[in-house]
Amino acid sequence: MQSDHKPNFYLLDKPKTWTSQDLCTKIKKNFNFNKVGHSGTLDPNADGLMLLATDSYTKLFDYIENTDKTYKATAILGYSSPTLDVDSDLIFHENINAASLTKDIENFLGNLVGESFQTPPIYSAIKVKGKRLYKYARQNQEVDIPVRKIIVDNTELLSVESNKVTFQITVSKGTYIRSIVEELGKSLNTVAIVEKLSRTSIGNLDINHSKLNKNIETMDYKSNLQSLDWKEVINLPILEINQEVLKSVQHGQLILSSMFSNQEKYILSINNDAVAIYKPFNEKYFKPDKVLL
Rank of each mutant, 00 (worst) to 15 (best):
S198C: 00
E283V: 00
M50C: 00
I105V: 14
K59F: 07
V86G: 08
Y278P: 02
Y136R: 14
N32C: 08
D289G: 12
G37A: 12
S261L: 14
Y266M: 13
D85H: 02
I193F: 08
G174Q: 06
G174F: 07
Q253T: 01
L112H: 05
E217K: 09
F286K: 13
L51M: 13
P7L: 10
I234F: 09
N189D: 07
K6W: 01
K72E: 11
K103S: 15
D4N: 14
P280D: 01
D153I: 14
T58F: 09
F260D: 05
S223Y: 06
L112V: 03
P121G: 00
V152K: 05
I241C: 04
N215V: 04
S198G: 00
Q243F: 09
N282H: 00
P288W: 12
K16Q: 07
A73R: 07
H5C: 15
M219A: 12
N242H: 08
I267A: 14
H5I: 11
F31V: 03
I267Y: 09
Q118C: 07
L197Y: 09
S269L: 06
K279P: 02
K35W: 06
K287P: 02
D43K: 08
F260R: 12
N208I: 12
K173Q: 12
N66V: 12
N213A: 10
D289H: 11
L254I: 05
V147E: 08
L205N: 12
P288Y: 04
A75N: 05
V233C: 04
V275I: 15
T70E: 03
S187I: 06
R178P: 02
L292M: 09
L51R: 12
L239M: 08
V191D: 03
N215Y: 09
K127W: 05
T190Q: 04
A276P: 03
K14N: 04
R148D: 13
I202T: 10
M259L: 14
D4H: 07
E156H: 10
K196Y: 03
E65V: 11
Y285W: 13
G114C: 05
E115A: 13
E106Q: 15
P15F: 08
I207H: 09
Y266D: 10
I255H: 00
A46G: 12
F117P: 03
I27G: 01
S124C: 01
R178T: 04
N30T: 04
